[in-house]
């Protein structure tokens, strides 16, 4: 009897591993940037191209950096969540307009609404690489010292905002 139980136990163990493995999302690669200083950049502002923005301008604030583009389908899916968050004005949301055309981006914001305090333009995706962006939209929660505390790959949902982003932001503000 025992000799049949062993293979059965191993089989069940394997099935368990596979079941867990199937539930994991292989697209979510843990970012090495969490816990590190947000990479510096200096980029033009989307609506005022002669103005430039550096992350240092946000010192002392807990803020979100949301990577978006007008060509990005999931960004549209995520957009109402950002609009809702900006209405509550709990924290500034800044946009990094990634590999997009200026006019397309502006038209997109006009059509769907602009949740951003401002958006900066990363036309060639250079800063995206510094931030390890590989699947737009991506969102970074950055603390008052300019350290990345959380990274969301793929669209934000209301559940993620409520369960992860807001509690973390609240803790960081203290």
């Amino acid at each position: 009897m025992k000799r049949f139980l062993w293979p059965l136990a191993i089989f069940i163990l394997l099935v368990g591993f596979l079941a867990v493995g199937l539930r994991l999302n292989p697209r979510e690669v843990p970012s090495p940037l969490v816990g590190k200083a947000a990479p510096a950049f200096e980029l033009p502002v989307l609506h005022q191209p002669d103005k430039r923005f550096v992350p240092g301008d946000m010192r002392g604030k807990v803020w979100l950096l949301n990577v978006w583009a007008s060509w990005c389908v999931s960004c549209r899916e995520e957009h109402p969540v950002l609009m809702e968050l900006s209405k509550r004005s709990v924290m500034p949301i800044l946009g990094l307009n990634y590999k997009d055309k200026g006019e397309d981006a502006q038209r997109w914001l006009k059509q769907f609404g602009d949740p951003y305090q401002l958006s900066v333009v990363d036309a060639d995706g250079r800063i995206g690489i510094d931030y390890g962006v590989y699947g737009v939209p991506e969102t970074y929660l950055i603390d008052a010292e300019g350290v990345i505390r959380y990274k969301q790959i793929g669209p934000l949902t209301q559940a993620i905002i409520d369960d992860k982003v807001l509690p973390l932001a609240k803790a960081l503000k203290k």
Binding site: V29, P30, S31, P32, L33, I129, D130, Y131, G132, Y134
Partner: peptide, 8 residues
């Protein structure tokens, strides 16, 4: 690249 995207 590892600094940006991790060991992955």
């Amino acid at each position: 690249l590892v600094q940006r995207y991790g060991d992955f």
